[in-house]
């Protein structure tokens, strides 16, 4: 009887330790959720220039609601003349989100290609414009074979959760703060890349504070 009591006490103790351990691990995991940063990197190979901007999403989340300027108030941008009264954008998005991964739109022209797709919880937009030559500096160095390749390529990947948060409400407002919050909860991702001649622009999210990725 005494041994059974001792065994029971030891088992209770073990269960207690395991439960407390699990709670502690959960708390630690929650506390150590890494800060997310949005990075913007602009590279110009021909000029040897690089601009890098790294912004903590929490900073943007705190600062944007304090800005009251133009169409931006309380973290929301009012979009004026967009008539969407006949379109239920939220229902449309919900339908797209619940549909299987697919390429929804493909437009192919002589010098341009546009593709809109949904893949792994993201909206993906690819635009390739072979005619684009927007960089004036590129025109001057046409003799340089190294930078002969022309055209613009834009890839945009946006988590559907971010688009949902950004969708305008009844007051025709885009909720930037909600979108940033959704972005900080999303996984690390490359959001935008733009290749234009010798220039490359990248926007991505990760937990590095110096954009060293």
């Amino acid at each position: 009887m005494n041994k059974r009591l001792q065994l029971g006490a030891v088992l209770c103790l073990l269960v207690g330790v395991v439960v407390m351990g699990a709670v502690a691990v959960k708390k630690t995991a929650a506390a150590s959720t890494p800060e997310k940063f949005i990075h913007v990197r602009v590279n110009d190979v021909s000029k040897g220039e690089m601009v890098s901007v790294n912004l903590p999403l929490s900073l943007a989340e705190k600062v944007i609601p304090t800005i009251h300027n133009g169409n931006l108030h309380n973290g929301k941008v009012t979009i004026g003349n967009v008539d969407m009264q006949d379109v239920d954008v939220r229902a449309l998005l919900a339908a797209v989100a619940s549909s299987p991964d697919n390429e929804f739109v493909t437009v192919k022209e002589k010098d341009q290609e546009v593709r809109v797709a949904k893949s792994k919880g993201n909206f993906i937009i690819h635009v390739t414009d072979l005619n684009s030559d927007s960089d004036e500096s590129n025109k001057s160095d046409k003799s340089d074979k190294k930078y002969e390749k022309r055209g613009q390529k834009v890839d945009i990947t946006i988590p559907i959760s971010v688009v949902n948060a950004l969708v305008p409400n009844e007051k025709q407002e885009l909720d930037l703060v909600a979108a940033i919050h959704a972005l900080s909860n999303a996984s690390e991702a490359l959001l935008v890349t733009v290749h234009d001649g010798t220039q490359e622009v990248r926007i991505w999210i990760d937990s590095q504070n110096d954009g060293s990725k």
Binding site: M50, S52, P56, V63, D210
Partner: peptide, 25 residues
């Protein structure tokens, strides 16, 4: 002022961060 205070408070609570880097020739 509210924007500046919010930005400074957020910067204080963040760890060391390189906000802007510009590298030219």
């Amino acid at each position: 002022l509210p924007t500046i205070h919010a930005a400074i408070d957020a910067m204080k609570s963040e760890g060391d961060t390189t906000f802007v880097e510009v590298r030219e020739e």
